[in-house]
Every structure is written in structure tokens, then in C-alpha cells.
Simulated assay, not measured.
Amino acid sequence: MKRILITGAASGIGMATARHFHRQGWQLGLLDINEVALAKLADELGNSWHRRLDVTDADACRQACEAFAGDQGLDVLFNCAGILSMGHFEDISPARHKQIIDINVTGLINMSLAALPALKNSDAPAVINMSSASALSGVPHLASYSASKFAVRGLTEALHIEWKRLGIRVVDLMPPFVKTPMVDAADFRAPVVDRMGVNLTAEDIAAEAWKAANEKVPVHNPVGFTFKMMKLLDKLLPSASTRLIMTFLSRE
């Protein structure tokens, strides 16, 4: 039985992915800082292995990976934990900016390092990183989040090459806005969200995670027709064109 470890599993994309892989008969390792919601999901999915985890704690990440992998190993790590804040850059506190970077970037680094020993013992290991369309161009009103996803994109590209020597595939998923509690609960609604629309569900991304876990997909995997077209235009036109499009979509 194949085994996947999912961070941010208690809601949104992480939860949808857990349910999707469970239906396909995979053994789940569920990690999230929300212990109550995590336990509820684990119970729903047949008392799946789960543990409360703050991904910014490197030691806790190592202990969680060791506990789940045990003697059975680990086939896929899905780095899904992440947060965002929408708003004018100066209206978001320094502490919140730091938290976004700490969870979205440092957390991914911590988990990738922690899972590496177990992944190396798998027959076809993979790391799937939750990136975003915001990694293509800096997004106004989502500056720190966008910066964090640029970092995820760079880390994915580097490890995609570097970990080939270990037989580990490293890829990312790059959707635009997804209908999740994280987006729905935002106090400030960035203009680009309404102009691009929230047309993807968490289940759509879970299906892409399944594909990435089981097929040889490219290093970057744009999700959704709108973003696929934007990414194509970014290749065909000067990068200034992408910035002009983003300026237009983000106007207040």
C-alpha cells in the first residue's frame, strides 16, 4: 500500500487531497496545526494516522516524519500547509508578513528535509509542493504571499534537478484562486480575485495532486484554463506584458 504524508490536511486543499487518496486506497499521514479539525478528519477516514504539527518547528517536523514513516516508509510528501493575507502591504503587520514566509517557505523546507530519509527508501518517491499562480507575477494586495510562492517555485526547480540523483521527483501545482476557507475568510478581497474569479475547488487541486503523485508530470503544473493561458502568454510575450495584465486586473 502506498503512503502519502500531507501537511495542512485539516482543511481546504489538504483535506480534499486526503479524501481523494483515501478513496484510492492509499495510507494517509495527516498533519496540521488545528488538532481538533485534524482528529475529526482522521476519524472520518478510518482513524488515519495524524499528528498536530507546526511546520515552522524543524524538530517537530523530523519527529512527525519518523513516526509516520517507521518501518513502512514514505512514497509521497505533499507540502500543502500555507496561509495568506490580502490587503495593502503597509496594512499587514510585520509579524503577519513573517508568519506567511515562515509557514509557506520555511515550513516547506523543514518538511522536505525531514521526509528525505524516508523518501530515499521508496521505489518511486515524489515531493509535491503547493505553489500558486502568484508565483508567475507579483500580485498586488498579496505581496508577501506572492513572494512566498516565488520562493516555492525556485525551491521546486532547484530540488527537481538536485534530487534526481536520489531518484526523487519534485514538482509543484500552480493554481489561481481556489474556493477554500482560507480565501473565503479573507477580510480584504483583492480586486484580482473577483476579476479572475474563483473557479477552482479544492477537489480540482486534489485531482491534480493525484496525477502528480502517479505520473511523470512537468516540474511546474499550472491548473485551470485561465492561468494556463496567462502562463502561455508569459512565454510568448515580454514579461512586461504579464505585469501590465496584473496591473489591469488589480486596479482599485
Rank of each mutant, 00 (worst) to 15 (best):
D102A: 10
C61D: 00
E203F: 03
E157A: 15
P176G: 10
M130N: 07
A209N: 08
K40P: 04
D71Q: 14
N79D: 15
L142S: 12
H22D: 10
A126C: 14
H20N: 09
S239W: 05
A64K: 05
H50C: 09
E252W: 09
G197C: 01
N129M: 02
L45M: 01
D43I: 06
D187I: 00
A37V: 02
M230G: 06
D54E: 10
G197Y: 00
H220V: 03
S93W: 07
G8H: 11
A212N: 09
K231P: 01
A67Y: 03
R165E: 14
D32W: 06
A16E: 04
N214Q: 13
I161A: 15
P181L: 07
V183M: 04
S134P: 01
A16Q: 07
A143C: 15
A151L: 02
L5K: 01
M174S: 13
V193L: 04
V183G: 06
K40Q: 15
L5I: 04
R153I: 02
T180E: 03
T7S: 15
D59F: 10
G73H: 07
A18T: 01
I101F: 12
A118F: 05
V139Y: 03
A240F: 13
G29Y: 04
L200K: 07
R96L: 08
F188A: 03
A60H: 07
A60N: 06
F150T: 01
R51S: 15
I13L: 08
G197H: 01
A212Y: 12
L155T: 00
D234T: 02
G138C: 01
M15Y: 13
K211E: 10
G154F: 06
R3F: 01
S85Q: 14
I101R: 05
L45S: 05
I128A: 05
R169D: 13
G70C: 04
I103T: 07
P117K: 03
I168R: 03
A158Y: 05
F188I: 00
K235L: 14
R169G: 04
L84D: 13
A114V: 13
A202G: 06
V183W: 02
A64M: 05
H88Q: 10
S137N: 12
A207H: 10
A69T: 04
I109H: 09
P238K: 07
N121F: 11
M86N: 12
D187F: 00
G14K: 04
L173W: 04
S85Y: 06
F248W: 11
L244R: 15
T180K: 03
D184T: 10
I103N: 07
